[in-house]
Simulated scan of single mutants.
Amino acid sequence: MNFWQRTLVTVLVFLATAGFFPNSFHVSSVWVAIIAAVILGLLNMFVKPLLVVLSLPITVMTLGIFYLFINGFMLEITSFLVGPSFSFTSFGSAMFIAIILSVVNLIITSNQE
């Protein structure tokens, strides 16, 4: 799946989860979701590999569970860069949205051939 397809899926997940969980996740408009998805994609391309390498020992010790914290942290950085129109109530809600996003991406990329 290329960058723009993954960005479109991320936008849809952002909008759907903001609708399902309005008390924990806020997206003010479709345009904000598009901007946040592009920023998250760029962060995942350039910053996330560095974080994964730096946190490899703790990720191995926790049998990969720490990778969820990295995903949640990437969403928090995205929230910081986008501003108050894209926000989470807590780090736990960012991790929850990261889990949903990962599962949806896994399902979509596994069915693509």
Rank of each mutant, 00 (worst) to 15 (best):
M1W: 06
M1Q: 04
N2G: 14
N2Y: 04
N2W: 04
N2S: 04
F3Q: 05
F3C: 08
F3G: 06
W4E: 03
W4Q: 02
Q5W: 05
Q5V: 12
R6K: 13
R6V: 02
R6Y: 04
L8G: 14
L8K: 04
V9L: 15
T10E: 07
T10H: 10
T10D: 09
V11Q: 00
V11L: 02
V11T: 06
L12F: 11
V13F: 01
F14G: 00
L15N: 02
L15Y: 05
L15T: 05
A16V: 14
T17D: 00
A18V: 12
F21D: 06
F21P: 01
N23T: 15
N23R: 12
S24G: 15
F25T: 03
H26T: 14
H26F: 15
V27M: 11
S28I: 01
S28G: 07
S28W: 03
S28H: 10
S29D: 13
V30H: 08
V30L: 14
W31Q: 12
A33F: 02
I34Y: 07
I35D: 07
I35Q: 14
I35N: 09
I35Y: 12
A36Q: 07
A36H: 08
A36D: 09
V38W: 13
V38H: 10
I39C: 14
I39H: 07
I39T: 15
I39Q: 08
L40P: 01
L43R: 06
L43W: 02
L43I: 13
M45C: 09
F46A: 13
V47L: 15
K48T: 09
K48N: 08
P49N: 13
L50Q: 09
L50M: 12
L51T: 05
L51C: 09
L51P: 05
L51Y: 07
L51H: 10
V52Q: 12
V52Y: 02
V53R: 14
V53Q: 12
L54C: 10
L54T: 06
L54V: 14
S55D: 04
S55H: 02
S55M: 12
L56K: 01
L56Y: 08
L56E: 03
P57M: 11
I58Q: 03
I58L: 15
T59G: 04
T59S: 14
T59Y: 02
V60N: 04
V60F: 12
M61Q: 11
M61G: 03
T62A: 00
T62Y: 00
L63H: 03
G64W: 03
I65M: 11
I65G: 01
F66Q: 02
Y67D: 06
L68C: 02
L68K: 00
L68W: 08
F69Y: 03
I70S: 04
I70V: 14
N71K: 09
G72H: 08
F73E: 00
M74P: 07
M74V: 13
L75E: 05
L75G: 06
L75S: 09
L75H: 08
E76G: 13
E76Q: 11
I77P: 03
T78H: 08
T78Q: 07
T78A: 11
S79K: 08
S79A: 15
S79C: 09
S79D: 07
L81I: 13
V82D: 04
V82A: 06
V82N: 06
V82T: 11
V82K: 07
G83E: 11
S85N: 12
S85K: 09
S85H: 10
S85T: 13
S85C: 02
S85D: 14
